[in-house]
Amino acid sequence: MALTREEREQFLAQPHIAALAVDAEDGRAPLTVPIWYQYAPGGDVWIMTGRDSRKNRLIGTAGRFSLLVDVLEPTIRYVSVEGPVLDTAPATIERLRELSARYLPADKVDGYVDFAWKNHGEQVVVRMRPERWVSSDLGSL
């Protein structure tokens, strides 16, 4: 059964690991990689990635990307969202902290943020406006 708008937005707002997909070069399948993301119901989705990464280059060329999140317990449920890139901006340590706090235990955030800020190279924040949704709750097996 398809999820209602409220159900799919609430599901996407949870801290799942997403699979990001974006068109790739001619002769290549779409790039699909796991990624952390941020979303609040009714808002835009944002991700953080390396400024010089293949992922960022492909997103810039395509002008859009999609995210897929799913769970298998307690029910088989997924939400896929696709839309245009609204903007790309340099990452800030505050955005890195926000994203890290979504996924890591509170006592691990500061250490991770310090390490990532010093070692991951220049990062960017890419915002996407959810335009197309596909969702389902298949129940439990």
Rank of each mutant, 00 (worst) to 15 (best):
E25N: 12
I93C: 04
V22E: 10
L86F: 03
A62T: 05
D52L: 14
P130W: 06
L141V: 11
Y39M: 03
T4D: 00
D87S: 15
G43R: 11
Q38T: 10
P105R: 12
P34G: 10
E25P: 05
H16K: 08
G83R: 01
A24C: 11
A18V: 07
E9V: 00
K108D: 13
L104I: 10
W133S: 07
R95I: 08
I76T: 10
P34F: 13
R127P: 00
A62N: 06
G83W: 01
A101Q: 13
G63F: 05
P74W: 01
D44L: 15
Y39G: 02
V45C: 03
E122Y: 03
V109P: 07
L20T: 07
T75D: 11
K118Q: 14
R64A: 14
D52G: 09
P105M: 12
P15Y: 07
L72Y: 12
S136V: 02
W117P: 05
I59A: 02
D70L: 09
I76Q: 11
S135L: 03
P105E: 08
A19M: 12
R77I: 00
R132N: 13
A116S: 14
A13S: 15
Y37M: 02
L67Q: 04
A106G: 06
W36A: 15
E25A: 13
N119R: 14
A89P: 01
R5A: 10
V125L: 09
E98P: 06
R127D: 01
P90K: 03
I47W: 04
A21R: 07
P90G: 05
G121E: 11
D26T: 07
D26W: 11
Y37G: 01
A19C: 06
D70T: 05
E122K: 13
A19W: 14
H120E: 13
N56A: 15
A91F: 04
G60T: 07
P30I: 03
